[in-house]
């Protein structure tokens, strides 16, 4: 069983749900990303999504776009992200999942990407612009090298759910709302039904992302899903650190970093003793 599978199994035994934060590698620097990964792991992150910064992130809203701009401006490229994963892997218990768009994978080489990912210790990969129709070569390479290729499933996937679940590895990433990444005020009322229909087609865990930004939302989703993915809300906090550093205020940057870690802890808290579905 993959590390991701084992983590979900262990959580289930404890009646806990997975907390899955996202951050962009190199935002605002690789050193800070490395420190944040260790701190998130210490505060209970079960899986950490590490974004490989990309010039044209189609599925991302302004917050994560800005993170990619900061990381690219700082010079972070694919080899730096692999090196980062290699450094943190022995130090964290969380599973590490790479989040990247298809073009950087294509240029690195599809087989070589999964080979390198495995070699540095990544457990999974998410490629938001690679739907099942186009994912054959990547799925084969991921399986060959033992990396979970985690698919996204949308509120309007409808009759595509069965096929997506059939190909899924690791967990199924359910997109909570139509649209790009970004914090939203409310959680869709249709979400429990969507999760239920996914679970009809697979025994894999289901994690929900896109729009989750507050502990009460995490709690609400945690009642139905096996994991909660928080991206933009975390990245917004990192943006605060970046702004403080850009202004030369290192004391403020430290304070922002502490606030971010406390915020992450507050997101995990309601998932520790998940209530049964209503």
């Amino acid at each position: 069983m993959s590390r991701i599978g084992a983590i979900f199994q262990e959580l289930k035994a404890k009646n806990e749900k997975a907390f899955i934060p996202f951050l962009t590698a190199g935002d605002p620097s690789l050193e800070i990303t490395e420190r944040l990964i260790l701190e998130l792991d210490a505060k209970g992150a079960d899986i950490i999504e590490i974004g490989i910064p990309y010039s044209d992130p189609l599925a991302d809203g302004p917050t994560i776009q800005a993170a990619a701009v900061r990381a690219l401006a700082g010079g972070t490229r694919m080899p730096d992200v692999f090196a980062l994963v290699r450094r943190v892997r022995p130090q964290v218990k969380a599973a590490l999942v790479l989040f990247t768009y298809v073009n950087p994978v294509f240029q690195w080489g599809i087989d070589r990407f999964f080979e390198t990912a495995k070699e540095v210790g990544a457990d999974g990969a998410i490629i938001p612009d690679l739907p099942i129709e186009e994912s054959g070569e990547a799925a084969a390479a991921a399986a060959k090298h033992g990396v979970d290729l985690i698919p996204l499933l949308a509120p309007n996937s409808r009759e595509r759910i069965a096929k997506i679940c059939e190909e899924a590895q690791g967990f199924v990433y359910v997109v909570a709302a139509l649209g790009v990444t970004g914090v939203r005020d409310t959680v869709s009322e249709d979400l429990p039904q969507l999760i239920a229909s996914v679970k009809e087609h697979t025994d894999l865990p289901v994690a929900v992302g896109f729009g989750v930004g507050r502990p009460e939302q995490a709690a609400q989703i945690g009642r139905h899903a096996d994991g909660v993915i928080v991206g933009s809300a975390i990245v917004k906090g990192i943006g605060g650190i970046a702004d403080a550093l850009a202004a030369g205020d290192s004391a403020l940057a430290e304070q922002k970093e502490r606030e971010l870690i406390d915020f992450a802890a507050s997101l995990k808290e309601p998932l520790r003793s998940a209530e049964a579905p209503l």
Binding site: L58, A59, V102, P128, D129, L130, P131, E133, E134, P151, L152, L153, A154, P155, N156, S157, R158, R160, I164, V175, L178, G179
Partner: peptide, 8 residues
């Protein structure tokens, strides 16, 4: 090569 949301 688009997000799942657009496939249907």
């Amino acid at each position: 090569f688009v997000p799942e949301t657009l496939m249907n």
